[in-house]
Design a binder for these strands. Structure first.
Lengths: 139, 139
DNA sequence: TTCCTTGCAAACGATTTGCATTGGA
DNA sequence: TCCAATGCAAATCGTTTGCAAGGAA
């Protein structure tokens, strides 16, 4: 899985360094978007470097930033790597887990989105569904 | 429309002051969530006061904060005032507009959400659909 | 009068940037 | 070798807080 990413970066003349590889591998290992401090716990790297790695990987289209209801910035691998999915957010602690719809569900969602967007005459570029719940720790 | 809000605050022993009224009226006048700086332009009030008013109104359940893909915090009136709706976000500038689904569409969305959440065994507390597009200015 | 609210300025936390050093092609 | 990447520390930006002054009950 790290191969296509290496090629993707190489094709853009961006180095796939130890630090960047570490960020990507950390993101591959988890089940949802992670904040810089959450990543910093797993990787003993200064935050400024994490921010820089994430910025480069973000520009390159390898990671994307996500801002949940608690305002924290969390990063995850882009959808071409991780696949299209949505998010399950805990109303208490803000933790985020990925949630994939079935192909059939996703299709129904697309229809809905297209229909509603068409009503106000805009062209859909993307969509995101967030399901808010309360995790066990926050019950 | 400001009447129920006045009563709501009064019932909680919270003063509906000039400054808070100004915030609520500004939010009533617009078509989507606004950031503190956007509000500050309309209201010649120090940002610290806006933040405080918004915090009080937020605790009281009159306004809610929203964090779009650009990370900016934007505030809007709570759904019991403004009605349930979703958001249309511009991928370029981050501007947000409200978008209400039809009752029928909303019902289909609910079903989808319940179905997907049930699959991973979580109890849905809320949901949010974000449609990303590109506004004219950002084309 | 008595609290609550506001304004200003200082404090904070997350993120960004400058600069000298290190690392990779 | 030579430019890009990193670490550290300082700077910045959005947001929060302390404190003294102004307003509502």
């Amino acid at each position: 899985m790290t191969e296509p990413i290496a090629r993707h970066l190489e094709a853009r003349g961006i180095r796939y360094t130890r630090a960047r590889r570490a960020v990507v591998e950390a993101l591959e290992a988890v089940d949802g978007p992670k904040s810089v401090s959450e990543l910093g716990d797993r990787l003993a790297v200064p935050q400024s470097s994490l921010y820089r790695s994430l910025a480069v990987l973000g520009d390159a289209g390898v990671v994307v930033a996500h801002h949940g209801p608690d305002g924290t910035t969390r990063f995850e691998l882009a959808e071409w790597i991780r696949g299209h999915h949505h998010h399950l957010v805990c109303a208490g602690c803000g933790a985020v887990r990925d949630l994939a719809l079935t192909a059939e569900e996703e299709e129904r969602l697309q229809e809905l989105v297209t229909e509603a967007a068409g009503r106000v005459d805009v062209e859909v570029e993307d969509h995101a569904l967030e399901i808010v719940h309360r995790c066990e720790e926050c019950r």
